[in-house]
Amino acid sequence: MSNHLLNLNLRVWRQSGPNDGGSFKTYQLSGVSTHMSFLEMLDVLNEQLIAQGEEPVAFDHDCREGICGMCSLMINGQAHGPDNATTTCQLHMRRFNDGDTVTIEPWRASAFPVLRDLVVDRSAFDRIIAAGGFVSVNTGNAPDGNSILVPGVRQEVAMDAAACIGCGACVAACKNASAMLFVSAKVSQLAVLPQGHPERNARVLNMVAQMDKEGFGSCTNTSECEAACPAEVSVSHIARLNREYLRASILAEN
């Protein structure tokens, strides 16, 4: 695929800290190769800013291969940019045209406060997992792996849910800043697998309670989360969470 060079107009959210109001700042960037990833483009911008004596734009990123879930960014109003099934680090500049204005904002949700520029605090997700997103099995307690049979097709459903990378795009894209796709992915994975069954009632009730406590919105089944999800987690897991919730509401023993 041939290489082209783009000139871009970047409108980037700058915010010096959690208590700063923040505002957009516009930067011109020229000679952007279409082979660059979006984050490499931001690297180039930052090099330019450093050369000019301006503090570089802070943004979260780590693995840059689409699995760690650390990168975020609302790019022209779309979580992780215009492509489906893609994280920002996998988005390449060939998706943009010469002369484009690109607006870059942080994830917006009360539960994800902005720390600086494009960096937000997603520790709410960790607290939701701590509330019940696990199987309580101490190291050393496990029976032989093959003593727990999981039909291949069930296993695939569990894996579909387990593929969630915890990036928060579902929250960012949802008009209600709901975390249902994230929470349901874990509830669903462990509800499908026999290993998760002993704790299924407590798990869904506790995780939902924590989700609410963190201040996420409610699900209106718009499916925008599914469209934005880089791991293609399906809203069918939200339905399973709802089933689990109904079931647990009626049957939970405490």
Binding site: V137, T139, A142, P151, L190
Partner: peptide, 18 residues
């Protein structure tokens, strides 16, 4: 064994074995 018990979705054969 430990990971299976934790719910790690290892690939399975149709019959359910690892």
């Amino acid at each position: 064994d430990q990971c299976v018990s934790q719910g790690v979705p290892f690939a399975r054969e149709y019959g359910g074995t690892l």
